[in-house]
Design a binder for these strands. Structure first.
Lengths: 345, 345
DNA sequence: TCAAAAGGCGCGCCCGAGGCT
DNA sequence: CAGCCTCGGGCGCGCCTTTTG
């Protein structure tokens, strides 16, 4: 017996139950509930009351099966642990709830393969997906976008909806800031390989440094985790640089811990700049100079783009909408982790 | 035409497509794919190859509709913004992925009504739910548990699976710690009304203080958000206390900011203790003395309990399993935000 | 012992019948 | 009698499960 017959004894009420109680046909109940204007007021009220009395709730699976719309949107993040995503999750959660859509939170474990295989399944169980810092190849991305609604964050691509946090701009400001303080040797602490953002940030730093006549080198790649901070700090100290710009705040905060451990004074011995302005950047010690990005806003915008695209008519419209894209400006927020270099070092 | 016919031109392949290609019946394909042992090896291989060639992926909605199992688990949090939940989300995400289950992340906005209404819908679209810090009444909880698999975190209830982070224990240690430093007047910064944890923590603090001969009062209730810190700090300063214990780290960190703003030295003028040991508690300024709770572990355990319960056979078994429960110990982690009170104040 | 056939699962949507103005 | 509003019937969605050969 397949019927889920928990405790109440009776299985969940269906449209048919409501129809019987209201004395109308199943199709009428369906219409009354989902398209109230297309039915007589009196009938509608009868139906609604019956539904209320029976505590009717539509079966989402059945609805999805016949309509093609699931009422869910997937949000893919490379690592749920990373505080950077918290704000994105939060921003999209907010928008999704307003639209009555549920959020499927998915962790891709920083792997393109995991991401791809998850999306294959997810494709059927959601109306669209928000890809944050995707590791997918261009071709895979295009292919996917053809069969489902997609919006990327920090990974623009022609024909696909996208939101970009223009951290490159903030990175330039960071370099200018450091140079104006007197720094001439700067290190960029590189993020994960294959990250579009990482390359973009590095290029911005590199370009700005060259323009301003400062030396800049790049460390090896570090995973975007707090514990990368140890290796990153050591790597930076191994150079003769007086300032460093980290791929993001998570790493930067990790570095602060290691620097304190090694007795390196920030900013006197080394200035540190982060990126993203995550939770914690303002109350760590010293408070972190960082590139402030409107992350939560990005989550909201990405969700709006996705919803406006899929609203027009379920998965059938996937790939049709040109894919609007937004670029959100960032700016440097100067706190206490940067300062003039010590004259003699 | 309802068919989702994105770009490839052809709609997603179904069991029937695979059956046709493999030259067998639909039911055979179904079995071959979901219950491989119950079918001839040669047949199975033919089917599997056909499925591979056609890039077949089952439609989760259809599967859910007929089987009753959705392959999803909901995780309800009162506020996705709260870093405390990050670790829970992370812990459960991990376990769920191992089991091939997807996570539905849901924000209840600190409201019992929102929580209840969401659960009504969710009930059909997931195989179970993890309720973190639920605000539901006992009766509502029981009622719900009768019709779906539930596991609560920090809200034990007979007959329902639960995980409790025993922060009361850590709270006692906190009081002992403060008293041993010489504090005699302590304030407990109260969390949200209706929170089981809040009451429990307060009682633990109260009891321990009385036992040790210290005075303890309680502030008004504060929402568990960082910006409550301002009001909380002011409220505490308004008393003659030399130490305070906050409902949780989020509030405590918010208080640190306000205290710095008002020029109050921590711990010289006021000792501050938090709870949970969230991300940031170790690198704020000063690093926070707090009750360390194995939050991620709690997320993992809760998920395991839920999965072991629902594994036995879909929603039909809801309410049957007695509901195992776990209590995870906590301990005080002393950092720099607590110290001896200034002799004269 | 295995595979084919058929009957749901619950809902959305299309089409057409009937009543009323 | 034409036209509109309203409702009922029926099919299809894709899969699982049971029964039958």
């Amino acid at each position: 017996m397949p019927g889920p017959t928990p405790t109440g004894g009776s299985r969940p009420t269906t449209l048919a139950d409501v129809a019987a109680r209201a004395g109308v046909a199943v199709s009428t109940v369906s219409r009354a509930l989902s398209n109230p204007t297309r039915v007589n007021v009196r009938t509608r009220e009868r139906v609604e009351q019956a539904a209320r009395e029976l505590d009717y709730t539509a079966n989402p699976s059945a609805r999805a099966l016949s309509s093609g719309r699931t009422g869910a949107v997937a949000v893919l993040v490379s690592d749920v642990t990373n505080p950077f995503y918290f704000d994105i999750i939060r921003g999209s959660q907010q928008q999704l709830k307003n639209a009555g859509v549920t959020q499927l939170l998915v962790d891709t474990e920083e792997s393109a393969e995991v991401e791809a295989s998850l999306l294959a399944t997810l494709q059927r169980s959601c109306d669209g997906a928000i890809l944050t810092s995707t590791r997918l190849s261009d071709s895979r991305l295009d292919q996917l976008a053809a069969s489902m609604n997609l919006v990327t964050i920090n990974r623009p691509r022609r024909g696909i909806g996208s939101v970009v946090l223009d951290t490159a701009q903030g990175m330039e400001q960071a370099v200018e800031h450091l140079v104006s303080l007197g720094h001439r040797r700067i290190v960029y602490v590189s993020g994960p390989k294959g990250s579009w953002s990482n390359e973009r940030r590095w290029r911005a730093v590199h370009r700005a440094a060259r323009r301003l006549g400062a030396d800049v080198v790049r460390t090896r790649d570090f995973p975007p985790r707090s514990d990368s901070g140890t290796g990153a700090a050591d790597a930076v100290l191994n150079t003769r640089a007086t300032a460093c710009i980290a791929y993001n705040d998570v790493v930067a905060i990790g570095m602060l811990a290691r620097l304190a451990e090694r007795g390196v004074a920030v900013p006197e011995d080394l200035s540190v700049v982060g990126c993203d302005d995550i939770f914690g950047a303002d109350f760590c010690h010293p408070p972190l100079t960082t590139v402030t990005a409107p992350v939560e806003h990005a989550g909201r915008v990405a969700t709006s783009i996705l919803l406006s695209g899929s609203a027009s008519g379920g998965p059938a419209t996937a790939g049709r909408t040109p894919g609007s894209s937004a670029v959100l400006p960032t700016h440097l927020t100067v706190r206490r982790s940067t300062g003039a270099p010590r004259a003699a070092r």
